[in-house]
Design a protein around this nucleic acid. Sequence first.
RNA 1: GGAGACGUCGCAUAGUCUGGUCGAGUGCACCACCCUGCUAAGGUGGAGUCCCGGGUUUCCGGGACCGAGGGUUCAAAUCCCUCCGUCUCCGCCA
Length: 422
Amino acid sequence: MIDVELLRAHPERLRASQRARQADESAVDRALEADTARREALTAFETLRAEQKAFGRRVAKAAKDEKAALVSQVRELAERVKQAEAAARDADETFQAALRGIPNLVLAGVPEGGEDDYEVLREVGERTTFDFEPQDHVALGERLHLFDLERGAKVSGTRFYYLTGWGARLQLALLTMALDQAVANGFTPMITPTLVNPEIMRGTGFLDSHADEIYYLPADDQYLVGTSEVALAGYHAGEIIDLSKGPQRFAGWSTCYRREAGASGRDTRGILRVHQFDKLEMYVYTTPEDAAAEHQRLLAWEEEMLAKIEVPYRVINTAAGDLGSSAAQKFDTEAWIPTQGCYRELTSTSNTTTFQARRLGIRYRPEPGGPTTPVATLNGTLATTRWLVAILENHQQADGSVVVPDALRPYLGGLEAITPED
RNA sequence: GGAGACGUCGCAUAGUCUGGUCGAGUGCACCACCCUGCUAAGGUGGAGUCCCGGGUUUCCGGGACCGAGGGUUCAAAUCCCUCCGUCUCCGCCA
């Protein structure tokens, strides 16, 4: 949620932000109007309510035989209070809805435009080349019995899969390595709920821009999370937290569920785009002043992981129009996928500034005993099931085996390569 | 799944039967100051969150908030309903 003070004092900044996102500028003015209407309605109600309370005190103090007369006098006032309260509530709901309709203010440095207007910040590593015809991850995985797509489809439908044998172990190894790295950097490991209540899902902003991506269970009025970011954001909802000892960093391990509603026909092969996968996610609560620096740290930790799996990648600065409603800036890292001849997203780190925290009511005290103010929150990927695609394709050998990157070997009992004979 | 008890200001509790002077007492913790020759004890005061208006760095006035949401009433922490959560017992499954 946008800061109301910002809306009132600098609506032009929000209009510019909306333009950069290729979103509706008039939403800003509707929110401003709704704010004015809400304040008028609130003042009207509060004036009447104060009158009523003053009268109530007189009734309480009055002698018994006078009470009936006084009470009959305020009946009509009580009715007006009730109406004014309803009007104030309606005006507030209108305002809240208008405010929620405005996505986060994009930061300076975010490229304007849509999905294809990203800026490439750097490319790291040489694009992998082979002196043989490389196989795609599906062929490799099936040959090495790392996953079973056919039976995944039989049991759960398209975009579902079983990880089997070394495939299952490879995922566990990868996520465990990610968790170890996070812990070494001061993150608190968390295994989070994957089913959350509506107010938490709404608070993270996913119901705005990604609503059709989310599984919903009507019988229970709950949502399946598409990332543990949701549960980690909700963790401190409604709380005043302590940031005096620095940022609070959490590493969430969870299964993630996505409907992939708008992606029919895209990436239908293999485990690149699936309805269910596992992820290790970083989530940070920090001060608004520190958020940009923390964002760089999250990106650096992501790149540290990519270095460990030894795949070429690039880093992009996502364009404004491709940001989620909560994000003020987003960096993706994309690994080179040899058989596709392009880079594919492996990690994504967003600075959501105070946007999520405002919606979820998460504050801190900059000064001990001083007033509260919303915290800033950030998130970033450290490993997902999809990483297996990049590992398999980039480390494949002419004989169909896949060399295990050095850093992963300790997590696989020292295994150096996955070979067809296994 | 059945029965019951409970949910109050950081923690622990009072207040609910008998609606009004209760945004709410007490203890502990906390902050400031005082006192005591010093990591004890004592004294005084302060202190919740959010919103609106005015003044504008630490102020004043008003409103909301006693798990959440409805209702009754001139008036609700207090009465009624629904939901959520916690605990205890029973059943069921391990």
